[in-house]
Simulated assay, not measured.
Amino acid sequence: MNSSAPDVEQMRTIARVLSLHFEEGLQQSQIAAKLGLSTAKVNRLIKQGRELGMVQITIKSPFVPLFDLERELSSRWPLKHCVVVPEVTGSAEATLNQVGKGAGTLLLEVLQDGDTVAISAGKALSALIENLAVDRSFAVNIVPMTGGVQGQHYTDVNHIATELADRLGGHATLLHAPLHTASKQERDLLMSVQSVKSVMDQVANAAVALVGVGSVVGSNATYYEAHPVSEQERQRLYDDGIRGEFLGYLIDRQGKLSGNGYNSKLVAYAPDLAAEIPVTIGVASGPEKVEPIIAALEGGYLNSLVTDERTARSVLEMEIEDA
Score class of each variant (00 low, 15 high):
S4G: 03
R12H: 04
V17W: 02
L18T: 02
L20W: 12
L20D: 12
E23I: 06
L26T: 08
Q30G: 15
I31H: 04
A33K: 12
S38M: 03
T39P: 01
A40T: 15
K41R: 14
I46V: 14
G49T: 07
R50E: 13
M54G: 03
V55D: 03
L69V: 00
R71L: 14
R76H: 15
W77Q: 03
C82F: 01
V83Y: 01
G90W: 06
A92R: 15
V99Q: 09
K101I: 10
G102E: 09
L106S: 05
L107H: 09
V110Y: 08
D115G: 07
I119D: 01
S120F: 04
A124L: 03
N131E: 07
A133I: 14
F138S: 07
V140A: 02
I142G: 07
V143A: 01
G147Y: 03
G147W: 01
G148L: 04
Q152K: 12
V157K: 08
I160V: 11
L164K: 00
G170H: 09
R187N: 07
L189E: 13
S192G: 06
S192Q: 14
S192L: 06
K197P: 00
Q202P: 00
V203P: 02
V203L: 02
V203N: 00
A204Y: 08
A206E: 00
A207C: 06
V208N: 07
L210K: 09
S215E: 13
V216T: 06
G218I: 05
G218T: 04
S219N: 13
S219D: 14
A221K: 04
A221E: 03
T222L: 15
Y223C: 09
E225T: 15
A226N: 11
Q232F: 13
Q235F: 03
R236W: 10
R236L: 13
L247M: 10
S258L: 08
G259K: 12
E276P: 04
I277Q: 03
S285C: 15
P287D: 11
E288F: 10
K289F: 03
E291I: 00
P292R: 00
I293H: 11
Y301G: 07
Y301A: 05
L305A: 12
T307V: 01
R313N: 11
L316W: 08
E317M: 12
